[in-house]
Design a binder for these strands. Structure first.
Length: 200
DNA sequence: CATAGGATCGCCT
DNA sequence: GGCGATCCTATGT
């Protein structure tokens, strides 16, 4: 079973539900030569009324404008001058919410992923961490504002991997101390039994 | 225009 | 556990 997620999956009005449902889905990229993919193992949700969100309280800037696009778009931005962090926009147009993909477990194109990461063999840190996911899958800011349901470069598939709520850990997000009380929201989700998670 | 700082990583000790 | 890398972004003058 390989089925690309449809637009309506992303456009629902519940970013934390979508974040949890993205666990086990398969993020795929094609750079024109090689297909690479990985099962999503760790995510974080960012809501429109959440001080950790770039578009908190409707804040529009050239960068955050992407978050106001309809759900299903990609939001890729540069962090610390080095890392392209990959997010999936959710909800309807003009409702800025997104899911940050933090870790995956490599599935397709292992050789390509290893070469991009300069690793000889798969280790837990080959695909764990938001900057690393982009490195492993070849995602750069040129992949910003791509429509996942239609893009030839990047998309998400359901391959039938499912996980019960009891197999998912929900806890606080990483690196958002500036978000005051919202730093306490349990909006980071990961597969409890996966070794491919950025912090255990 | 100038400036401070970031949803991080990897290397060093 | 600490820190430098590296550059875009947002903000203020």
């Amino acid at each position: 079973m390989k089925k690309r997620l449809p637009q309506k999956f992303y456009q629902r009005n519940d970013v934390t539900l979508i974040a949890r449902e993205l666990l086990g889905k398969v993020l795929c990229t094609h750079d024109g030569r090689k297909l690479t993919s990985g099962m999503i193992t760790e995510v974080e949700a960012y809501g429109r009324m959440d001080k950790a969100c770039h578009a908190y309280n409707g804040k529009r800037t050239p960068r955050t404008e992407t978050m106001f696009l309809p759900g299903g778009n990609t939001y890729v931005y540069l962090c610390y001058g080095i890392h392209s962090l990959f997010n999936i926009v959710t909800n309807k147009k003009d409702v800025p919410e997104a899911v940050l993909i933090r870790s995956i477990e490599a599935l397709d194109g292992i050789e390509t992923i290893l070469a991009r990461r300069k690793h000889a063999k798969i280790k837990t840190n080959t695909t764990s961490g938001p900057g690393i996911v982009s490195s492993a899958l070849g995602i750069t800011r040129s992949a910003n504002a791509e429509m996942l349901p239609h893009s030839e470069r990047i998309w998400v598939e359901d391959r039938g991997f499912t996980f019960a709520t009891s197999e998912i850990t929900s806890t606080t997000r990483i690196g958002i101390d500036y978000a005051e009380e919202d730093a306490l929201l349990p909006w980071r989700f990961y597969l409890s039994n996966s070794p491919f998670v950025s912090k255990r």
